[in-house]
Write a protein that binds this DNA or RNA. Structure first.
Lengths: 189, 189
DNA sequence: TCCTCATAGTCAAGAAAGTGACTAGTCAGT
DNA sequence: ACTGACTAGTCACTTTCTTGACTATGAGGA
């Protein structure tokens, strides 16, 4: 039941179309949650039916009409309720971790390929988040923004996303180094 | 289809009972994947049916009999195949991130409660991983172990788990500090 | 002119993950 | 004698997530 709250949280600061919400949750951009368009639209429909968000039709010219959603009072109450109950901590759940877990039984070169891919992905995503953070800060330096800027929530979650990808990148680097050193040591023996 | 590979990876180094595997995947201990006992037993049954693991009954006295599982040649081939195809990167998916995303619209004190809980959890889990790492290293120092120790795979994934929880802890600390500072600044105004 | 991309969605089906309850025996405390 | 924890597992059900395809329209480039 967290996607529903994630959608509510995404709509808090501005009225968005379903399409815009799907963009916010799209792979590669999601800073605090991830979901596919189908899930987002389904969740929006449920939320509207329950009165937690309200949608209004906007007729457009030159492109398809859209529906803009905003959070209702009930929606905000639901979020407050969600925040007041304990959050369940997430675990790391990466394919690559499974592959590295088996490292001692697998081909090192194959693993290094995987690690290189993940490294590049992490680097790119971290850069993307960094760019987003810069935009959110506007002119202010970080300390100033954190103290007085509007909307620190999204900023703080985005920072977590950036740091997560940086940690992934660094881990990939370290693992590759370890695997290469062992390979070299093994060949020497 | 990653749990199946996680189970295979867990069984690579030693023959384990289903129960032991469930322990390895239990909440709070999982270093590279997480799953509930029901999932693990179901997966083991499937893997055995497909010949990727082989189980043997062990009769015990004083406690229930158990079945020990080991990975077959086919199982290892399946893992190799898994490692040779691209791993899909995971996203952060934490309830607490959703709550912080909405921080600007929620009660700060309530959020700080959540962050304090998560902080403590992260700290405890990081310590647990640290302890596990110490045990895996045995007498060796880390550089030595990474170069020449047996089974670096599990060590490296455990390190990722530890660093992940440390990052969670640090993030919680930073977020709390930001929220408190803003609260103080707001009261002053 | 065709092709692709972006906007703005929807439907159906399946795989994966999570929840709750339940069996059954042993051992250590209170 | 009773309680709770540990070993060792199983059944049934639900929610959540993922995959793949499909409908439209308009703008820009090769």
């Amino acid at each position: 039941m967290a996607l529903r709250h994630a959608v509510l949280a995404a709509l808090l600061d501005e009225e968005l179309s379903g399409y815009q919400v799907t963009k916010a949750f799209a792979a590669g951009v999601a800073n605090f949650w991830h979901a596919l368009p189908q899930q987002v639209y389904a969740e929006l429909a449920r939320l509207e039916k329950e009165g937690l968000v309200a949608g209004r039709e906007v007729i457009q010219e030159g492109r398809p009409n859209k529906r803009l959603f905003r959070v209702t009072g009930e929606g905000l109450a639901e979020l407050e309720n969600f925040a007041s109950s304990a959050a369940k901590p997430a675990f790391l759940r990466e394919d690559l971790l499974v592959q590295v877990q088996a490292a001692d039984h697998l081909d090192v070169d194959v693993l290094i390929e995987r690690l290189t891919e993940r490294y590049a992905f992490a680097e790119a995503k971290a850069a993307l988040f960094e760019e987003q953070l810069r935009r959110m800060r506007g002119g202010l330096d970080e300390a100033e923004f954190l103290l007085r800027g509007a909307r620190v929530g999204p900023y703080l979650t985005c920072r977590r996303g950036r740091d997560f990808e940086r940690a992934n990148r660094d881990w990939c680097r370290d693992v590759m180094e370890v695997l290469r050193s062992r390979q070299a040591a093994g060949e020497g023996a």
